[in-house]
Nucleic acid binder design. Structure first.
Lengths: 328, 328
DNA sequence: ACGGCGATTTGCAACGTGGCAAACCCAGTG
DNA sequence: CACTGGGTTTGCCACGTTGCAAATCGCCGT
């Protein structure tokens, strides 16, 4: 059995409470006492029992980060930053992976972790917004990457519509006229990809170009393989595009590979823009033009919201910028 | 305040203990009672308090995964698989990120999380093996990716020496004779990169080739940027190699980019082999030949070891295979 | 020497749960 | 009708910690 406060107290010849005071760095402990207790703690190898502490304090110091996939580079980068920012605030992050499974998302949302964490950062994928409103759980919740005004929940996200419009306008400015949008997800109930599509259409409309349904490409998921497959189809179609705005960098990297497979020169014959600014895109050949959300800021803002849960749910917009590289 | 067992008990008109029995699916509860209690649980939205449960049971159901970086694709993929496997076993994974910081590693190793998790999967980077032996903590520990026989700790890793030898032999079989090794880490106290170097040298020796110090390239860390930088140096050197065995895929992807920067044709003028089989390498242009560790198996074996801590520490070797793609 | 005051230490209780074993209930049996 | 035994329910307590507030200590000024 691990030593507990009582063991340390006996060893140091003080009361349990005094040991607790030392552990918690209470002001009024005589230096001599403090030293003696410290020595006993060291000697016995005492470590506070988190469960007991949590039970007593009512807080765990844990925050759950719920994301579809840890190994999708965007989420990996977001998770890494969240863990760092949280660590600086004395919080530990517990990462939950849903695999985009609606049931698992619902499960987590409705408090399967509720008594284990002080708050949940939730990056929804399959769960319907209505589920959010219906949740019975009282643990503070912040939504990441969603911004459609779903009632009653704090949000942090970039302005997806504007970002998508800027990305598309960039392609237009490069003289492209047949610009496809890749990444539409018919089955997702969430707003992100829809917002990017909206921004894309707005840019086309702004340039006086008609929307062409053949250029709005749906995918099953947002991975490289999907981008690869979808791009091959586009390239093999009667009238291939001269540019593609991909809703994620992963899609774009798959598309890039497809272009290589078909011997299509990028950016000469085909320009590409991605979304997320993941590390891979900086080193791909050619390197990837992309929309860069400020991931550090997103993590910070999300934890701010979690720490300061006010009555009125807030929607916060994180900054983003267009990073132009070789694919455009 | 969240409802507790007592609230449910009052609501259902039974004792606290009976509610506990229902929650824990104890055999001897009358169906009628069970139903009534279930209804009350539902009505009040009761969730078990993890802290109290942990305090009482002595187990948390949490496992810590300590890795240098979440957003390094190899670790991201390993983490994703570990979370999945652990979930199937009723365990939750808490991911700790050390950024390769020795102090943080030591910190975690010596039980900063000890009373919070039932076990630790530790992927060491900066911490000295001696520290492992010296640890006072009693939480079960399994080392990932290390296999140098450090006393007293369970290990799971692939056979790095053999894998590295096979990778190098593959390049030799392709007719390459000036093969560099990239990824030596002078400052790391750990065995992995040393073992890969050993395998590389063994392959060269087996082919009767001399070891050339100029071809053994050290790097600061194992990221794309390091591979990029190191490859540029190699290519700009008086006698560039005709092949490079990179100790990680990230290095290789950086090297690939460097080859593109210098207009060197891959694989014609320069062959590359990586290590880790990360997703990026499958879609890069050209796609990356690599050593593929069986990450699922590593996660499973590690959790097996954690679950079944026997007296004698064991070293388990996970399988790997060479995946030949376009860079060689 | 005494009251007062801040500094330091302490005892008690409670956080919510589950292990233990006793208590209870009821139908079947002799 | 008391007895037996399996099924069902329950009360008590401890898990290790910290909030609370009271107790104690030592020193100062008068």
């Amino acid at each position: 059995m691990n030593p507990k406060l009582r063991d340390v107290a006996e060893h140091a010849g003080v009361s349990v409470r005094t040991v607790s005071n030392v552990v918690n760095e209470f002001r009024y402990v005589a230096p001599a006492t403090r030293e003696r207790v410290r020595a006993s703690i060291e000697a016995l190898g005492y470590r506070p029992n988190m469960a007991a502490r949590t039970l007593r304090r009512g807080r765990t110091g844990l925050v759950a980060l719920v994301i579809p996939e840890i190994d999708s580079p965007y989420y990996a980068e977001l998770a890494a930053r969240t863990v760092r920012v949280a660590g600086a605030r004395g919080l530990t992050v517990l990462i939950d992976q849903t695999d985009g499974d609606a049931e698992r998302e619902t499960h987590l949302l409705h408090g399967r972790r509720s008594q284990l964490v002080d708050g949940v950062l939730f990056s929804p994928w399959a769960v319907a917004p209505a589920e959010l409103a219906a949740r019975t759980d009282t643990v503070p919740l912040v939504l990441l990457g969603e911004h459609d005004g779903t009632a009653g929940v704090d949000h942090v996200a970039i302005d997806n519509v504007t970002a998508a419009r800027e990305a598309t306008e960039h392609l237009l400015a490069r003289g492209r006229r047949r610009i496809a949008a890749m990444g539409i997800q018919p089955q997702s109930r969430y707003a992100t990809t829809r917002q990017r599509l909206t921004g894309y259409r707005a840019a086309l409309a702004g340039a006086g170009l008609p929307a062409d349904p053949d250029l709005e490409v749906a995918v099953r998921s947002l991975h490289r393989a999907d981008g690869h497959e979808a791009m091959l189809r586009l390239l093999d179609s009667p009238r291939p595009p001269d540019a593609v705005f991909c809703f994620t960098d992963e899609l774009a990297l798959g598309a890039l590979r497809a272009a290589a497979d078909r011997g299509v020169a990028v950016p000469e014959s085909l320009a590409l823009v991605g979304f997320d600014d993941v590390e891979d895109g900086r080193f791909s050949v050619p390197s990837l033009t992309t929309v860069a959300p400020d991931k550090d800021r997103i993590a910070e803002l999300a934890l701010d919201l979690l720490a300061d849960q006010s009555a009125a749910p807030r929607s916060i917009t994180a900054p983003h910028r267009l990073v132009v590289r070789e694919t455009s």
